[in-house]
């Protein structure tokens, strides 16, 4: 990276032509493999990945990016194999669809000397990745639980909606249960709403039929919170004081900002963590700054006071 200025000039004059053909030694390629936008959060993650690539392509002309979205684990494995075979990537940023099926293929890429950044979902074998960027799932549950305790100081009856049965979901629920332990908050029931609005609507309708008194709902996700709020409104129930979602969907952040009593808070689990991963990986390639290690992005409590800084109007999520 000693001839950065020289390279930048060369890149500018040749910017229309594919650089890697003539200057394979100097242009470095970062491959990014992420799941397709199959739900709101993943949609946001796709948006932030594209935004990061666009920004970095301008800042670092010596870097090339290959972005592939996969709708299932086997497609993701093929994507990664193609990136290595046809583009000769120098670094791989991967958000594994599932941990198990991706571990072997990513390890094979790592063995070829490619820099590996794993995002959010860890691989099943430790030590493969050079950099790990992730949200804090136990922390997400803990912050949610602590908020419940502070919002219901006298204790109360709550129901909880869980996501798709995964490690992520288990860690969140464990964190939540730990935080409310001994607080007088009674969990009447937990069912899977699969991070889906329609499923959450159905589950919440049934919770309302089953329990005559519910003080609050831990929807644990903003897509599910949308369904939960609709079910409560349709049932005309006034016993539910508030719904705590999570992940920071812009519509929900806006409601918190505008002091909606039903949506008093949110807990972040930012889809923009993919951007952090891409930025740090790029930094590692173009500079001498050390970036190997673990980078855990904390889950923060959003309240009406600080909601404005978590509101991203352009993001689809």
């Amino acid at each position: 990276m000693k001839h950065l200025a020289l390279m930048a000039t060369t890149a500018l004059t040749l910017s229309a032509a594919p650089l890697w053909a003539q200057e394979a030694e100097e242009t470095q390629v970062i491959g990014i493999s992420i799941p397709a936008a199959t739900h709101g959060w993943a949609g946001g993650m796709n948006y932030f990945a594209q935004a990061a690539v666009e920004r970095l392509e301008e800042v670092y002309p010596q870097l090339d990016f290959v972005l592939a979205t996969a709708s299932d684990p086997s497609k993701q494995v093929s994507d990664i194999e193609d990136m290595v075979a046809t583009r000769g990537i120098d670094a791989l940023v991967v958000l594994p669809f599932e941990s198990e099926p991706l571990t072997g293929p990513v390890k094979a890429v790592a063995d070829q000397g490619v820099w590996i950044t794993v995002v959010d979902r860890g691989l099943s074998e430790p030590g493969i990745e050079d950099l790990y960027v992730a949200g804090d799932n136990p922390g997400f549950g803990r912050v949610s639980g602590e908020y419940m305790v502070s919002a219901l100081p006298e204790g109360g009856k709550v129901v909880a909606l869980r996501g798709i049965p995964t490690t992520i979901d288990n860690e969140r629920v464990a964190g939540f249960e730990e935080a409310i332990a001994g607080s007088g908050i009674e969990v009447l029931g937990m069912e899977h709403g699969n991070w889906n609005r329609d499923d959450a609507f159905t589950v919440m309708q049934d919770f309302l039929s089953k329990h005559s008194q519910i003080d609050a709902v831990w929807a644990s996700d903003d897509d599910m919170a949308v369904g939960v709020l609709a079910a409560i409104e349709a049932a005309g129930r006034s016993d539910v004081k508030f719904v705590l979602g999570g992940a920071g969907m812009k519509e929900m952040i806006a409601r918190t900002r505008d002091s909606d009593p039903m949506v008093p808070a949110n807990v972040t689990y930012p889809p923009s963590m993919i951007a952090s991963a891409i930025e740090i990986t790029a930094l590692g390639l173009v500079s001498d700054a050390p970036v190997a290690g673990r980078f855990i992005i904390g889950s923060e409590l959003v309240t009406p006071e600080n909601a404005e800084q978590y509101y991203f109007p352009d993001s689809p999520f």
Partner: peptide, 11 residues
């Protein structure tokens, strides 16, 4: 529908 919604949700 994913494309129409830009990967997110149409409201």
């Amino acid at each position: 529908v994913t494309w129409l919604a830009d990967g997110g949700t149409l409201s």
